[in-house]
Design a protein around this nucleic acid. Structure first.
Length: 174
DNA sequence: AACACGATTTCG
DNA sequence: GAAATCGTGTTT
């Protein structure tokens, strides 16, 4: 029984979607057909052309055009020539926003989690509502979380660097 | 066609 | 603290 998050969820503003993804289930189908479920524990919001830390701040390019699509698809991006970053596009069409999935309860680190799940450039533009190999299921619960400044964006300037748009799942008993 | 650099990780 | 490593955007 599947309970994929609906399109309406992804059409909300990235500042709503990013914290709401915490605690939700990321489901991945292994090449053998086996399903693995992970719990999202850390996210970051990248919001529009005015956000200097967002790749879309320099306008639409071949790489960033998927961020301009309607919410509910993946934006995959290679960083430092070695690590794929997994992002969930949010908002309406032509509104470039995305949530960087920085960590899972089972795997820490954005580069390590994509490696663990076998995600790469072939997943760019993947539709989370219809894909047979990856999707996100809702738990129906809202998770408690804490906010922090985003990581690795010193080039974005003081204003954008200090936005509390990094969200961590508040762990039980911690 | 050449160049500079990054939403990271790992090792010393 | 620094290297690894390559696609992308910018400059020539």
């Amino acid at each position: 029984m599947e309970h994929r998050l609906p399109l309406e969820f992804y059409l909300q503003d990235v500042l709503v979607v990013a914290p709401s993804l915490l605690g939700q289930k990321l489901v991945c189908r292994h090449s053998s057909g086996f399903l693995t479920t992970y719990t999202i524990s850390e996210t970051e919001a990248y919001r529009g052309t005015e956000d200097k830390a967002c790749h879309a701040s320099k306008g639409m390019t071949a790489r960033t055009k998927v961020m301009f699509a309607q919410g509910g698809v993946l934006y995959m991006y290679l960083i430092y020539g070695m690590y794929w970053m997994m992002n969930v596009v949010t908002g309406a069409r032509d509104v470039p926003q995305a949530v960087l999935i920085r960590g899972l309860r089972e795997v820490s680190g954005p580069g390590r989690l994509t490696k663990a799940l076998g995600l790469n450039g072939s997943f760019n533009g993947e539709d989370l509502l219809h894909s047979e190999r990856i999707w996100i299921e809702g738990t129906g619960r809202e998770a408690a979380f804490t906010t922090h400044p985003r990581i690795g964006i010193d080039y974005a300037g003081e204003v954008w660097k200090n936005k509390p748009w990094r969200y961590l799942l508040k762990q039980d008993g911690k």
